[in-house]
Simulated scan of single mutants.
Amino acid sequence: MQRRHFLRAAVLGAGTSVAFGFSVTRQAIAFPALPGPSPYGDLLAADANGIRLPDGFTSRVLARATETVTGTGHTWHSAPDGGACFADGDGWIYVSNSEVPLTGGASALKFNGAAEITDAYPILSGTTQNCSGGATPWNTWLSCEETDRGAVHETDPWGGRAAVRHPAMGLFKHEAAAVDPDRKVVYLTEDESDGCFYRFVPTTWEDMSAGTLQVLTEDGSGLAWADVPDPAATTARTREQVAAAKHFDGGEGAYYRAGTCYFTTKGDNRVWAYDAERDALAVAYDDDIPDPPLTGVDNITGTAAGDLYVAEDGGNMEICLITPDDVVAPFLRVEGQDGSELCGVAFSPAGDRLYFSSQRGTSGVSSGGITYEVTGPFRG
């Protein structure tokens, strides 16, 4: 059996007697994604910002690290990383983490209905290496510290309320968070070569201050969730506390949609699909193919049309999309910034603007980070 067909049929830990955990869905038949033509066509020559885009799309620079955001008094943070958008009347807010050690934190850009920046301000400070995170349905941003025994901090995108540290969500090398409102849990990835995939079950929904941290496990009977005995990691690292825990090679971005949590692992360049309804796990994309278009998988987001957008940490500095038909293709490429990584992918509430950052820009250092916006005819 060819490897592609095997992967399409595999249920990773959910019982091999079933052809696939999502047996009645189109995704069950098509995984994993393979290279093909982009729905937006080929990339054109680089624009004035050094970004190659499909026809009909344009880019603009919104903010540069260590420089004042135009029209505001706020200095944009270095090493911009994970981000998300929040509706604000007829405008919106884009929040962005800072992965700088010791100072970390997060900031926000506020837009009016004409897409003009009207304000910029900090929403989190006094933390360290804030990498990715996740937006909540109750309009807060979960900012995650990517450091040993790092924490999740819940922040207010409007900057009106002080951020709150949530140690109950576990102290480990956090990467991303994806909220599942259907099961009322939050999925968490861990950026370690033997990291785990977790979920936090709050005692009271929308209150992350108390609850149970669980880790995904795998044994002969399939996948299950087990409580982590010591989420504060005072006795042992969280990933070492449950013998049957399933380990992943460098957890990165996470995105939840319609019963499935998609997450990426950088060590093996995979995009995973966890079917929360059936406790089934599949490989949605694997770069073990000739001339893979997507390498260095990192932050991930999605659109109402069903497309997934995955940013590269390294690779050839692309943001690639994976279509509902399981075709993977480049959406954009940043030229002249090989010492950087792309991150912070997020769409405006209307879905017509894509935000992302180049963490180290053209200089290759964190103080050279650049945050961009791409506008164009995105699929609805």
Rank of each mutant, 00 (worst) to 15 (best):
M1C: 03
G13V: 01
T16V: 13
T25H: 06
Q27P: 00
P35W: 07
P39I: 04
Y40F: 14
L44M: 14
A48S: 07
A48W: 00
L53Q: 02
S59N: 02
L62H: 03
V69T: 11
T70F: 05
T72D: 02
H74P: 00
W76T: 00
A79P: 00
A79R: 12
G91L: 05
I93A: 03
T103N: 11
S107E: 12
K110F: 01
K110S: 12
G113K: 09
G113W: 09
I117S: 10
D119I: 09
Y121M: 09
G126N: 05
G126K: 08
T128K: 01
Q129N: 14
T140W: 03
E146C: 09
D148V: 14
R149N: 12
V152Q: 03
E154M: 08
T155W: 06
T155E: 07
W158A: 12
R165E: 15
H166Y: 10
H166G: 02
A176M: 09
A178I: 11
V179L: 02
V186H: 11
E190D: 14
E192A: 12
C196H: 01
F197K: 01
Y198P: 05
T212S: 13
T212Y: 02
Q214D: 09
L216R: 06
D219W: 03
S221H: 10
G222Y: 08
A226I: 00
E240G: 00
Q241A: 04
V242E: 03
V242T: 05
H247A: 00
E252V: 06
Y255C: 10
R257G: 00
T260K: 10
T265H: 05
K266D: 13
G267F: 05
V271D: 11
W272L: 08
R278N: 15
R278T: 14
D287H: 14
D287I: 01
I289A: 03
P292T: 08
P293Q: 13
D298Q: 04
N299C: 05
N299E: 08
T301E: 04
T303V: 01
I319L: 12
A329V: 03
P330I: 03
P330D: 10
L332W: 09
R333T: 11
Q337A: 14
D338Y: 10
S340I: 13
C343W: 02
G344V: 04
F347Y: 05
S348C: 07
S348P: 10
A350D: 15
G351N: 10
Y355T: 05
S358E: 08
R360P: 04
T362L: 08
S363N: 01
S366L: 11
I370D: 07
Y372A: 02
P377L: 10
